[in-house]
């Protein structure tokens, strides 16, 4: 399975959980979860799908959550090891 497909599945799994929760929690719940546990690369990849592939395959709740998900810094911003 491609990385993209996997990522979409993971995001949708989270949305599936929040679909069963009280409505008020929905998108915020998804966004909080992703902000807490997804590394920037994964969020970047997610935004790539949202921004450039019109959210192909993503659960509508993930799309609704997107504006609440923290946009990661562009790749390359921490390209060097820390000064020791």
């Amino acid at each position: 399975m491609s990385n993209d497909a996997k990522l979409v599945r993971m995001a949708n799994q989270i949305a599936t959980f929040f679909h069963s929760q009280p409505a008020a929690e929905g998108p915020q719940g998804v966004a909080t979860h992703i902000n807490k546990f997804w590394e920037p690369r994964m969020r970047r990849q997610l935004f790539d799908i949202v921004d450039h592939r019109s959210g192909e395959g993503l659960d509508p709740m993930v799309l609704a959550a997107a504006p609440l998900i923290k946009r990661p810094a562009p790749s390359g911003s921490t390209d060097h090891p820390p000064a020791a």
Binding site: F37, E39, P40, R41
Partner: peptide
């Protein structure tokens, strides 16, 4: 005596995905 990243890192399956993908 360092500054720490405030972003979550990769979990094991994510590390492996990222490795396959080249980053």
């Amino acid at each position: 005596g360092v500054s720490l990243s405030n972003e979550p890192g990769l979990r094991i399956p994510n590390m492996l995905d990222a490795a396959v993908e080249g980053s």
